[in-house]
């Protein structure tokens, strides 16, 4: 049986018909072709599929598409505004926070959520917040620096 859903993704309203078992990540990737959100595992462990659901970071492989009915979703494709990179995107580029790029969208979505609740996190707090996001390339070293870069930039902007 198919279920009708209506989801606001990156500011645009989408209607779709999904199976009850269909995951939100699948809806984003297969129905909307928003392939910036990646699938890295099948146990909700790696965080590559992290997006924002109603403003909070969630693993979109752990949310059913029907649960997103009526919700607001932000994916990596919605981070930049009018072609201007979000500070977290800038941070990842400036601090070499990515290599293969596969974990990067999920990392950035988690980081943005962290910075919302903690504008000036310590290194320890950053590493703690990234516990649910795996990276195999960077050893996390420059990801921490990228998030610190973004924090500094965002604090500067709001000061």
């Amino acid at each position: 049986m198919k279920n009708k859903i209506s989801v606001n993704v990156n500011g645009k309203q989408y209607e779709g018909e999904v199976e009850g078992r269909e995951l939100l990540v699948n809806f984003l990737r297969e129905h909307l072709s928003l392939t910036g959100t990646h699938i890295g595992c099948d146990t909700s462990s790696c965080g590559a599929c992290t997006i924002h659901l109603n403003g909070h970071a969630v693993k979109s492989c752990t949310v059913l598409a029907v649960q997103a009915d009526g919700a607001e979703v932000t994916t990596v494709e919605g981070l930049a505004t009018n072609g201007e990179l979000h500070p977290i995107q800038e941070g990842f580029k400036e601090e070499h926070g990515l290599q293969c790029g596969f974990c990067t969208p999920g990392m950035m979505m988690t980081a943005v959520d962290l910075l919302k609740s903690n504008a000036n996190p310590t290194e320890h707090e950053i590493r703690d917040a990234l516990e649910g996001n795996f990276c195999r390339c960077t050893g996390y070293h420059n990801i921490v620096k990228s998030i610190q870069y973004a924090a500094k930039k965002m604090n500067g902007a709001t000061a």
Binding site: T35, L79, E94, H96, G101, M108
Partner: peptide, 23 residues
């Protein structure tokens, strides 16, 4: 020199094209 990576733009904007993204 530590030139910033030219490939980063597509990855940080979700425009990487990995095999599973191909339809």
């Amino acid at each position: 020199k530590s030139v910033k990576r030219v490939e980063d733009k597509r990855f940080i904007t979700g425009q990487g094209n990995y095999t599973d993204d191909i339809k």
